[in-house]
Design a protein around this nucleic acid. Sequence first.
DNA 1: ATCAATTAAGACAAAAATATCCTAATTGAT
DNA 2: ATCAATTAGGATATTTTTGTCTTAATTGAT
Lengths: 144, 144
Amino acid sequence: MFSKACEYGIKAAIYIATQSYEGNRVTPKAIALEIDSPKAFTAKILQALVKHDIVFSVKGAYGGFEIPKEKIGRIKLSQIVNAIDGDTIYKGCGLGLNQCNENHPCPVHDKFKRVREELKYMLENTSLEELALNIKSGLSFLKV
Amino acid sequence: MFSKACEYGIKAAIYIATQSYEGNRVTPKAIALEIDSPKAFTAKILQALVKHDIVFSVKGAYGGFEIPKEKIGRIKLSQIVNAIDGDTIYKGCGLGLNQCNENHPCPVHDKFKRVREELKYMLENTSLEELALNIKSGLSFLKV
DNA sequence: ATCAATTAAGACAAAAATATCCTAATTGAT
DNA sequence: ATCAATTAGGATATTTTTGTCTTAATTGAT
Ligand code: SF4
Ligand code: SF4
């Protein structure tokens, strides 16, 4: 469904959010440990999230990654996916004709439409906040 | 959503079906041309479909690929996807924890559940027949 | 001012997916 | 029996994705 990079990106953002609620910045090392991902690769992905203003970085000693508390509720899963995988999840679905539209649909267009729209709706209406809170309350997990 | 291999596999199966209705066998060359895919790679994918008894091959001169007319209606999109991409589409969703289940869900589990089930339902309830008939009637297209 | 800790960035490496090429085996037509 | 057409299968090549490593830039604490 998503690329590995995107999976790591989502998990990283969730972990950073949980820590930001406590006022802690986190390093790529801590993140990689917490979400069970390759450290250097994760660091690359974090750069992308920073470029897209989804997470914020502070360089130098005592630096790290954080997300301002008040932003966490407004960040949607769709932004993270978009920052890393682009819009392929919306556009590259189905059988990926070169040009595709309602007037020249591939054979599965109508069938996929519902799934695609359901996915789109879900990504656009799931906030980082709810995902992070579920982690904090032990309802869901970032690894194992 | 799907791998390229899977996209080609689906399109190839649809094209073979349309031709099988007319009693024609088709070669990988013709298929690749019709679905706009790399010929040799498509041939590889066809082998997988043959192994899974989704399409049937006849070797030698005047040979080619075909699907018995009476089977076309019973072949579901899910079988094709499964033959090529395996069950990653069902199992490898979301954030892909190492082990994942209802009791130890990743943060997006509940969110993804609906999308995943919608996709599963669609794949299991879409037959090659309906896709092929839409091509024949000009309602959908295999390329451009 | 210096130092240690940290992110940023780019070069490099490995693995996986995609794609090509060549040869062998099969088979219908002649 | 031979030939031409065709699938099967394996070796190889290319591209993309995933992952690593090294160095530079930044910055808070001392
Ligand atoms: S025609 Fe529709 S389903 Fe097919 S690739 Fe285009 S947008 Fe996706
Ligand atoms: S916990 Fe659920 S959503 Fe997450 S990877 Fe497992 S099955 Fe998919």
